[in-house]
Amino acid sequence: MPAEIVAAITDIELMKASQIGMKGIAAALAVGLTGLGTGVAEMAIGSAAVGATAENKDIFGLALLFTVIPETIVIFGLVVALLVLFS
């Protein structure tokens, strides 16, 4: 096989490998950043919810509901990550 072709094939393989790597980074960013976003959003809600529940135990269900609302963000991140990795 002529040397140029071998070099070209190696280049393509390298490109493929780096594409896989980029996908990995993209997926990690999608989950990681959305996770941070969710964490920041839940921080304030969570402390308020715990305080409110300590005052009145009956609103536990509602407090939990409020606290987990921002979790949607990380779920979207997860779905994006899975789509990036497996499609």
Partner: peptide, 12 residues
């Protein structure tokens, strides 16, 4: 959409 996708946590 967000509520349906929320069930993805079962797998995640």
């Amino acid at each position: 959409i967000s509520h349906i996708l929320s069930f993805a946590r079962l797998v995640a």
